Simulated scan of single mutants.
Amino acid sequence: RCSPFAAHLYDAEDANTPVRMLPGLCPDYCTDFWKRCRSTLSLLTGDQRTMDLESDRERFCGYLVLRDPEYCYPNVLSSNRLNANLGAVRADPEGCLQICLKEVANRLRNPVAMLHAADGTHRFFIAEQVGLVWAYLANGSKVSRPFLNLTEAVLTSPWLGDERGFLGLAFHPSFKRNGKVYVYYSILSRKAERIRISEFQLLPSNVNALDHTSERSEGQRL
């Protein structure tokens, strides 16, 4: 069942911790799981590190246990303090109570924006800080060619915490009719760091790509 506290269970709020393939378990539950159900691990995860620890209970639980007594599984489902104010929300047919997390894209480099064009196609678009924008079709598949590629123009670096780069994306309210898209990104101009706000238009021959030669822009010094 999905949980509104999924980010806690998977320790997803701290970018410096490894990605969990299984939710964080409460100590007693982990011991019980190891004794009764560890044979099912291969059905739950393909994480080799978890599989390698299967035979050693102490190391296995040391890896999977979430020390917070309220947010670990299954305590998080029965905590009155956490669940009392969720409101009168009924479960949907899949058993989700409030917010369910579903992966829709991966292998991205610091994504900074995700939005749709409100044009009836049910596509969504994801922008990466390095200057790439990708289009995803209604069935979830990623278009192989970038919707926009500004990697040669965008000013950024591999340094963790660098706030420069491709920073914003917006579709014109009449995008379905005029094909206009607006972007906001960092550039280096005459040895000065600047912000560029640009307008692009769709390629007439491809609704999943912008015409890079159509850029109209304004620059502002930082």
Rank of each mutant, 00 (worst) to 15 (best):
W159F: 14
Y185V: 01
E152D: 14
S186V: 01
R145F: 00
D162Y: 03
P173E: 11
Y182E: 08
W159R: 15
L167C: 01
P146D: 08
A138M: 04
T156N: 14
F147G: 10
F171H: 08
Y184L: 14
T156C: 12
A138E: 13
N149F: 01
H172P: 02
Y136S: 12
G179P: 02
K142C: 05
T151G: 06
V183D: 05
S144L: 12
R177Q: 14
F175Q: 05
L169K: 12
E128R: 11
V130Q: 15
Q129R: 15
A170T: 12
A138P: 00
L169Y: 07
R145Q: 12
Y182A: 11
F171C: 09
V154Y: 04
Y184S: 08
F171D: 09
L137R: 15
K180F: 10
N149D: 15
V183L: 03
L132K: 14
G161P: 01
S174I: 00
G140Y: 04
V183S: 06
K180I: 03
S144G: 11
V183C: 03
A153S: 12
S144K: 14
L150W: 00
L169T: 07
F171W: 11
P173W: 06
P146T: 07
K176L: 10
G161I: 02
A153Y: 03
P173Y: 09
N178M: 04
N139F: 00
T156I: 07
G131I: 02
H172E: 10
S174Q: 14
T151Q: 15
L155I: 00
V183T: 14
N149A: 07
F147W: 11
Y136G: 10
Y184T: 01
S174V: 00
Y136K: 12
G131V: 03
W159K: 15
K180N: 11
L160I: 06
R145P: 00
V130M: 14
Y182L: 08
E152V: 01
R164Y: 08
A138I: 00
S174D: 13
H172A: 14
L155R: 15
Y185G: 06
W134T: 02
Y182F: 15
A138D: 13
F175K: 06
F147Y: 15
T156R: 11
P158E: 12
L137Y: 02
Y182R: 09
N178K: 03
R177I: 06
G165H: 04
L155P: 00
S186A: 12
Y184K: 01
F171E: 10
E128Q: 15
A170Y: 08
D162S: 12
V183P: 00
E128C: 05
K142S: 05
V181F: 05
A135C: 13
K142L: 06
F175R: 07
V133K: 10
A170F: 07
F175E: 08
S174M: 11
D162G: 09
S144N: 13
L169N: 11
S157G: 08
Y136F: 15
R164A: 12
F171K: 10
L132V: 11
L148Y: 01
N178L: 03
G140L: 09
L155W: 06
L150R: 13
N139A: 08
K176G: 15
V181K: 07
G168C: 03
N149Y: 01
H172Y: 05
E163M: 07
V143K: 15
Y182C: 07
V130T: 14
L132D: 02
P146L: 12
S141C: 05
W134M: 07
L169G: 11
R145T: 12
